[in-house]
Computed example of a mutant assay.
Amino acid sequence: MTPNRLVFLRRFGSTVVLWSVALWIILSGHELGFHFLIGTLAMLGLWEYYTMLDHKKLPNFKIIGLICGFVFMVGSFYYFSHVGPVHSYDFEVATLLFFLLVVFARQMFQHTRDISPLETMAYTLFGLFYVIWMFGFVTKIVYVLPRDDTGHVTGHLYVLFLILVTKFSDMGAYLTGSLIGKHLMVPHISPKKTWEGFFGALAFSVGGACGMVALMPRQLSYFHQKDAVILGLVLGLAAIIGDLAESIIKRSCDVKDSGHLLPGIGGALDLIDSILFTAPLLFFYLRFVLDVS
């Protein structure tokens, strides 16, 4: 078996197993299971981010960052599920301020000079914003949609839409780039990304979005085919940027993958890197374009 085929089989197997579990949890509509899934992926992603910094010997407050991330995720779940989205935004702003205060307070006990204190705080806070805050928009999507008549959440189906469209983009880029990719896109960031893969990603994401809206018109009642085309393009582009953004971080830290949790894929951060960018855009589309609140 060729190395490329072996990598593909490992990646395919990991993807099938992981997303089978994830989709089962999402489709069940069980809030605690969903919270556990999102929280686990977020915390693993944050751990991997700080581990990459350690590999490059870049200063950071890993433990402080992980504690802050845990507080944000648990608090966000509680406020959005029990208090509601409107008042939960105040909690989010307060928590972000808490991040700044805690990291600055921690730095006061470090006897360092030059630029090291600024670097330590910047690396620590960036991880919290990049992983925890951005991935937290998945939770917001669940609760920004009104509950049904029985009190069950409906936003989990829009998270399903988000994940499938994002992964269609990733799959389109991988398949198209592997089959016909010749023109390199940004070789200084990712030597395998091609322009053929870029347009393949957009085509797959638009097709996936339109297909989901056509198959689930009642469950995705806020979306029409026009929205599907727009979101397919927007989320597809954001997924590409998200993948390249993590590539910048990995290249800066001299690592190939963020971790070794998933054979053929890498770590949790490799799995959610695109969703970090697509989730906020879908949330703001729901809020500001479709006026969901």
Score class of each variant (00 low, 15 high):
V138T: 12
V138R: 10
V138E: 12
T139R: 09
T139H: 14
T139A: 09
K140R: 15
K140Q: 15
K140M: 06
K140T: 10
I141G: 09
V142Y: 03
V142K: 06
V142G: 05
Y143K: 02
Y143P: 09
Y143D: 11
V144I: 15
V144Q: 13
V144K: 07
L145M: 11
L145D: 01
L145I: 13
L145Q: 09
P146V: 06
P146W: 05
P146E: 11
R147C: 01
R147N: 08
R147I: 00
D148F: 02
D148A: 04
D148V: 00
D148E: 08
D149Y: 04
D149F: 06
D149A: 13
D149H: 07
D149G: 10
D149R: 07
T150K: 09
T150E: 15
G151W: 00
G151L: 01
G151E: 02
H152A: 11
H152K: 08
V153H: 00
V153R: 01
V153A: 01
V153Y: 00
V153T: 00
T154S: 11
T154M: 14
T154Q: 15
T154K: 15
T154D: 02
T154N: 15
T154A: 08
G155Y: 05
G155H: 04
G155W: 05
H156W: 03
H156N: 14
H156D: 07
H156E: 08
H156A: 04
H156R: 01
L157H: 13
L157V: 02
Y158V: 04
Y158N: 10
Y158S: 05
Y158P: 08
V159R: 07
V159I: 12
V159E: 05
V159Y: 04
L160W: 10
L160G: 14
L160Q: 12
L160T: 13
F161T: 01
F161M: 03
L162Q: 08
L162P: 08
L162V: 05
L162T: 04
L162I: 04
I163H: 04
L164E: 02
L164H: 02
L164A: 06
V165W: 06
V165Q: 12
V165S: 13
V165Y: 12
T166N: 06
T166D: 09
T166S: 14
T166V: 05
K167S: 07
K167A: 06
K167E: 15
K167V: 10
F168S: 15
F168Y: 10
